[in-house]
Design a protein around this nucleic acid. Structure first.
Lengths: 230, 230
DNA sequence: TAAGAATTGTAAACGATTTGACAGTCTTCG
DNA sequence: CGAAGACTGTCAAATCGTTTACAATTCTTA
């Protein structure tokens, strides 16, 4: 693994901080490793840290009273999660689980808030990033409200491709490592319901299905297709 | 209407700013009034302002390619909207419409960003507020993924009650001014589909239906009821 | 490599929501 | 005050997703 400082320096969240701030960050950070499907923290936990993903993929999820779990969003290397650090005293709003094995850089909430106060020039970028997360969430609400099932599933797949691929979506093939069951849980549907639609996508040549993963040979083709349907 | 400074001073978003910052804010702010259903700004607009609601209710919405409009969220007096100001150069991500007649205090984006840089002690509160918005959005995604239709509608009604009532939900009656059609559009359902469920709530005495509005005699009763269903 | 666990494919029956069509009710505005 | 417009209640048919059940496939690990 690359050293902590390299990972921190490349994380967009910190791009507003001057170099000495990154050094300070390194000083308070701690590396932790989790195996696939290992719990990172659970909803309601009082310990709050900001986490930078050095490698791997993380699931953010919630559990309903009946015990059914839903994945709300996923994050991959280079991004961050644990935004309850921005609200002092706040408990974990959602749980986090390693989707694949992950290496995290953990930054204690209180120390991070002090660091921000010391280097206020870092705030604008952080505010920008949190805002963008907010729009990403709103965009999912938007999809649920005014798009058909096919478009919803397709857009969620592109979303996952963006996360698990190398940043932006292009014409390069991307493999999404996720089970159909997981997709169903993310969307409030059943595995069989999801199956019908992605099978259609496969028949159109927009994706290829395999055990535990979905391959998008050309993500932009799916993207274009979604614009033609409701 | 109360004067600008009083409204600004009471807006939680600015509670981290020192008094002189509020004075500066007042200097760059401008009052605007909109009638019910009047467009405040549309999605994609390049002009970006932070808006504080002095009175009235605002709808944030999006339109799909087929022309169908969905209300994503609503805001009322004392709160703010227009978070694209936190990302310099960003166009409006969603449109805003006056739900009831509103009086807004408009703060130009660029000037506001300069103000934040001048008084960095205001950042932590702003970051906290944006984070909370993010969780509110996630909580809607969560509802869609793991709750039944009845619970989803009920929770959305409580959400609207919180917005249109006086802050927090209590045992005091709250009148929600919204049409069933609007609720349906918010939830990706049809008017008839919503009808069936809220009629059930009415039969249980949890709410009263009227023309263009829904009365919650005791919001906490509805809240408790929602915990007993899936 | 063989067994077992996890994941996926498939289909019919069932249940629930949307569609489409009208009539009735409430408001507002000339 | 009366008419137009907006909103609401209802119903049957059609559509769509879930449920239920079982078989087949792929992966993991002993």
């Amino acid at each position: 693994m690359k050293d902590i400082k390299t990972v921190l320096a490349r994380c967009p969240l910190f791009s507003g901080f001057p170099e000495p701030a990154i050094d300070d960050l390194e000083g308070i950070a701690r590396i932790r490793r989790f195996e696939a499907n290992e719990l990172i923290y659970s909803k309601g936990s009082a310990i709050s840290t900001l986490n930078i993903i050095a490698s791997g993929v993380v699931r953010i999820s919630s559990v309903n009273p009946a015990g059914r779990e839903a994945t709300l969003i996923m994050f991959s290397a280079g991004t961050w999660f644990g935004d309850s650090v921005f609200s002092p005293g706040m408990r974990r709003v959602y749980g986090a689980t390693a989707h694949e094995a992950v290496t995290l850089i953990e930054i204690p909430g209180e120390a991070f808030r002090e660091l921000m106060a010391t280097y206020p020039e870092g705030y604008p970028v952080i505010l920008d990033m949190v805002s963008r997360r907010l729009w990403a969430a709103m965009s999912i609400i938007e999809d649920d409200a005014l798009r058909g099932v096919a478009a919803r599933i397709g857009r969620r797949l592109l979303f996952l491709a963006e996360i698990q691929g190398n940043g932006d979506i292009g014409t390069d093939p991307v493999t999404i490592w996720i089970t159909r069951e997981h997709i169903a849980n993310m969307m409030g549907m059943t595995r069989q319901g999801v199956h019908k639609w992605i099978k259609n996508f496969e028949r159109s040549g927009l994706l290829e299905l395999a055990y535990g993963r979905i391959l998008l040979p050309d993500p932009t083709a799916l993207q274009r297709h979604l614009e033609t349907i409701e």
